[in-house]
Design a protein around this nucleic acid. Structure first.
Lengths: 133, 133
DNA sequence: TAACTGTACTACAACAAATAATACAGACGG
DNA sequence: CCGTCTGTATTATTTGTTGTAGTACAGTTA
């Protein structure tokens, strides 16, 4: 059973949910480089959706170099995810800067902005305290 | 000419773009309480889209209490926007906390997170230095 | 050879968004 | 009162995207 999940009621297309889900799993290290993906037909059966939808998602993941495919063998997580990790790191910092700037422009005091950030970090710390490997 | 803009190529529905645009203008103070909105037909003509789409957007804005309508007179920005402002303030802080926590979990050092925030605030300062009223 | 794997293609169904065309009622100014 | 603006409501139609269905073909592996 794979970690990939979709919400049929969401207005985000299913194939895109799969793309986002796999990207997220790769970034979080829950799917390792060169690890084999579920086959198109197997994942389609598990999620109870059409194989073509999975194929579309895998095609997009390959285009984004998050997975690679070997004809007749299967699809695999990319061997080198450093580019993906760097992009994600940049995106995170960009979003953070954006939110901070917007909060400031909205008149929220700098002290409150900084307090929000430090408390969020403290909470994140508790959440990750244990349970790795 | 109104400040409301839409992007026909976006995958966000037009009526929703209008809702978001008006909400944003109200939050940023570019549309004042009790200010009259462009009429359904006038805005439809200006944006070159169907009046029904505008009507749908205005209906949703009224449902969200961002505007009110007077039969035969027109649509107007709500007199009291404090609820909207509070909600927005909360949403901003929530997004900020979320991004900070995610950055931390991703392994970005606390120092870098804090530096990103303070520099974003400094930049926002320059952008708002003058030009009010 | 059989049973997997990925890939490609066409046709069709389903749904949401947007359009089109009306119709009706309140407000306002002459 | 009349004409014209305003919002509101209704129904039908078109359009585009998403997803489904079915089929076919090629590479890999045992």
């Amino acid at each position: 059973m794979s970690l990939i999940r979709v919400d049929l009621r969401s207005r985000v297309p299913i194939f895109e949910q799969i793309v986002n889900s796999v990207r997220d799993l790769a970034i979080r290290g829950l799917m390792k480089p060169d690890e084999q993906m579920p086959s198109v037909r197997a994942l389609a059966a598990e999620l109870a959706i059409n194989p073509n939808t999975i194929q579309k998602a895998y095609g997009e993941l390959e285009r984004q170099k998050i997975i690679y495919s070997l004809a007749g063998r299967g699809n695999f997580i990319a061997s080198d995810l450093t580019g993906l990790m760097d992009t994600h790191r940049q995106a995170l910092l960009h979003a953070l800067a954006n939110d901070a700037a917007q909060a400031y422009r909205h008149g929220i005091p700098v002290a409150e902005i900084e307090k929000t950030v430090s408390e969020a970090i403290r909470s994140a710390n508790f959440g990750e305290e244990k349970g790795n490997d």
